[in-house]
Design a protein around this nucleic acid. Structure first.
Lengths: 327, 327
DNA sequence: TTGTAGGCGTTATCAT
DNA sequence: ATGATAACGCCTACAA
């Protein structure tokens, strides 16, 4: 490995002169700077990140932590994050899994964006206590080194629930996310509110986990329920993936049940796939790219020592044909 | 930041004893080791990655480089990679963009898996020359520090082309990937071979770029072509994303043209979305998870100094209803 | 069994 | 304008 020492030797100057030259300090003659740069290039010199960050105590790298890499959902978010970070002179790495949590305390990254329930709140708070800067996208956490950029879950869930009510539905199912999910809790709370203030409305909660299989199981249960009744059911799946699972189950096991007629389904996320289902899935939309970009901006501000307010990502309702009106 | 020095002070031993204890060396009494470990925990000690890797010259981190984060495609691949790496004691980071190329030469990672055309061949070769270990998934590159794990593009393209021929089609369009793409070149070569040995078959090449929009543009052009003719067209899109673009264009601008009857489409990749199109897209399938896992295994072997053979990922044909037979 | 000391490649503070 | 030198936090001979 070629180091500044080698360059110094070759250029017959001291290592400090080399360091200055490489960092473009005005303390060195343009002439010698040029000479040193030339030699560096010739020797294929590349600075060693470990040595630099040992000294500077920063890496200019930001980590985004995700629960898994099932990217369908995260692509745009990461793209948004990357654009901002690149512009600010930072690099982005994406990590997943408990193993990789070490990156933060070991100081391989200058800050982190968290969208990963496998991080415990206490864990994050203790990192923050030690001075690490964090932006959380999946929980509320109050600490001067932590900023929140959260979805407007309540607004989204209300839009969805009210839409179903408006269409005349009174028997509402919801399929939730996994137990610990902040987003899921928020959504459930909002739906409960809407149902409670609607005369004659009833709410049936089915526990899910944001995966396709949970949607299938929920569909099975709902169909078993509705065999007896005459009222059509309306289902709010707390994400699109479970809604898709429900579509799959129905088309396979109940091909004669028409979505949007006998059963009504709305999701959350507006993932790409949602616009390809037959009929088009009703869902809640928001800009994933903007979410990622905003998170990056907030994090950079935190790192720069600016004070930052928590932020919220707004959502809108997308009416597809998967929800029709109750006759 | 708490370092071994702090622990040493608190435990009234020297820093080397601390270091030995932390690394579980038998040179230290179990008793003092325990005491030191306790103090370390109490002080919330975390080793500094930069310092350690400055010394050990390794980071136990592997980088996967992707062209972009439009994950729909990469999720399974990364999952497969992660599983193997975790098992081998390595962490995985995902990088994208020219900026992040520095991770390799600056030694922030112990090796890289490349699926990113924005790396130049010369660039990769020069890294390999400097001792960096690489696995490439998107090109052929001969170097003792580089291993290839490539898709069996030729087999896949032949399966696709022969399937169209079998179904009686003779006017074949292909929509290619971007100019530099290795996969695209391989596929085109194979299709050309199949067409050349089939009497009466003609091949029309439309340049694409693996994005949805290219599929839309190609559809437009094909529809313009076919307005005059009576023969139905068969199209082999070199990836599913462009095929989806074609579906979109047709359903929007030519709702009366039936896919699988007047126009026949086959893709490549079998992405999740492909099974939701109406009609189901015919395509070429392969295990993305296995691809990623194999790449990881090969890389670890390279790093361990084992000799490794290049590997190939096998593909199969999935017959959907997007291809029917020519009457 | 424990301590001393040198070095990994940089940066940064002093002298010169 | 340049050089000598001391950190940064960790590992590891070698010495005691």
């Amino acid at each position: 490995m070629v180091s500044i020492k080698d360059i110094a030797k070759q250029a017959r100057v001291s290592i400090s002169t080399v360091s200055y030259a490489l960092n473009g300090s005005p303390k060195v003659t343009d002439e010698t700077t040029a000479r040193i740069l030339a030699i560096a290039k010739e020797l294929n010199y590349v600075p060693n990140a470990a040595a630099r960050s040992l000294k500077t105590r920063e890496t200019k790298i930001i980590g985004v932590f995700l629960t898994d890499f099932s990217g369908a959902f995260y692509g745009d978010l990461l793209q948004g994050t990357k654009e901002i970070l690149t512009q600010k002179g930072y690099d982005l790495i994406v990590c997943s899994g408990k193993q990789s949590h070490r990156m933060l305390p070991e100081r391989m990254i200058d800050g982190a964006i968290i969208l990963d329930e496998t991080f415990g709140n206490e864990q994050l708070l203790s990192y923050a206590d030690r001075g690490h800067k964090l932006v959380v996208l999946d929980r509320e956490l109050s600490h001067s080194n932590i900023n929140q950029v959260l979805l407007d879950n309540k607004a989204g869930a209300m839009l969805a629930a009210e839409y179903l009510i408006e269409q005349g539905h009174r028997k509402l199912y919801v399929v939730t996310g996994p137990n610990g999910s902040y987003d899921s809790k928020q959504r459930l709370q909002a739906v409960t509110q809407v149902v409670e203030r609607t005369a004659g409305a009833q709410l049936i909660v089915i526990e899910g986990d944001f995966n396709k299989a949970a949607g299938e199981r929920a569909a099975e249960r709902i169909m078993a329920d509705s065999n007896s009744g005459l009222v059509s059911s309306a289902v709010f799946c707390f994400n699109d993936e479970m809604a898709i699972g429900m579509f799959n189950y129905l088309s396979e096991h109940h091909p004669n049940v028409k979505i949007g007629e006998q059963i009504h389904i709305i999701g959350f996320d507006n993932m790409e796939l949602a616009s390809y289902t037959q009929p088009r899935l009703s869902t809640i939309d928001y800009s994933k790219r903007k979410w990622g970009a905003l998170a990056a901006e907030q994090l950079i501000k935190l790192i720069s020592g600016d004070t930052v307010e928590h932020e919220r990502i707004y959502v809108t309702l997308i009416k597809g044909c998967s929800v029709g009106s109750e006759k």
